[in-house]
Computed example of a mutant assay.
Amino acid sequence: MEIKKFNVIGISIRTTNENGQSVKDIPALWNQFLTEEIITKIPNKTSNEIYCIYTDYKKDHTAPYTTILGCAVENLESIPEGMIGKTIENSNYEKFIAKGNLTEGAVYNEWVKIWNSDLKRAFTSDFEVYGEKAQYLKNAEVDIFIAIQ
């Protein structure tokens, strides 16, 4: 499926899956996003869906990459201090749906399946979308979009 280019503004961290680093870094980023109410500080939002973007891959999912937690926005003209803006270019994506209890690793478990699949990934920008169905933590659905070649 093709997804057209869009912009996102949010907070970010450079991390890696090596030595379980991302398992510490990404929840810490979520904690900051929620406790500092970052969503209320993002200008020109196109919706209140939360995007978790994985981008700027050094090589593939075994090497460092950047995680951005934020919202889709109309433009990148006004990026608040301490935040980052990123344009996600047109690309073809494979869609996965993580279903289950978010507090028990439903999204991570879906990623393990993706990492172990033979999907021809592009390693440009992958992302998760936390919309209405993600609000019920114990019975959630999160869309995961993987850029493919």
Rank of each mutant, 00 (worst) to 15 (best):
E2A: 05
I3G: 09
I3N: 03
K4D: 14
K4S: 13
K5Q: 15
N7F: 05
I13F: 02
E18R: 10
N19W: 00
V23W: 00
V23T: 07
D25V: 04
D25S: 00
P27N: 13
P27G: 07
P27K: 08
W30R: 08
N31I: 07
N31G: 12
L34F: 11
L34E: 12
T35H: 02
E36K: 03
E36P: 05
I38S: 02
K41G: 09
P43G: 11
K45I: 14
N48I: 14
E49N: 15
I50M: 07
I50C: 08
I53N: 06
D56P: 02
Y57T: 01
Y57K: 03
K58D: 12
K58V: 13
H61R: 05
Y65M: 06
T67V: 15
C71V: 13
A72M: 10
V73Q: 08
E74S: 04
E74D: 10
N75S: 07
N75R: 09
E77T: 03
S78Y: 14
I79T: 15
E81M: 12
E81I: 09
E81W: 00
G85P: 04
I88F: 02
E89K: 12
N90C: 07
S91H: 09
N92F: 11
N92L: 13
Y93V: 10
K95V: 06
K95H: 06
F96M: 03
A98D: 01
K99C: 09
N101A: 08
N101C: 06
L102T: 04
V107F: 02
Y108L: 15
Y108M: 15
Y108D: 09
N109I: 00
K113W: 07
K113Q: 09
S117D: 02
D118S: 04
T124P: 10
T124H: 11
F127R: 02
F127G: 11
F127A: 09
V129R: 13
V129A: 14
E132S: 15
A134R: 05
K138C: 02
K138G: 06
E141G: 01
E141I: 10
E141D: 03
V142D: 08
A147C: 14
A147T: 03
Q149S: 15
Q149G: 12
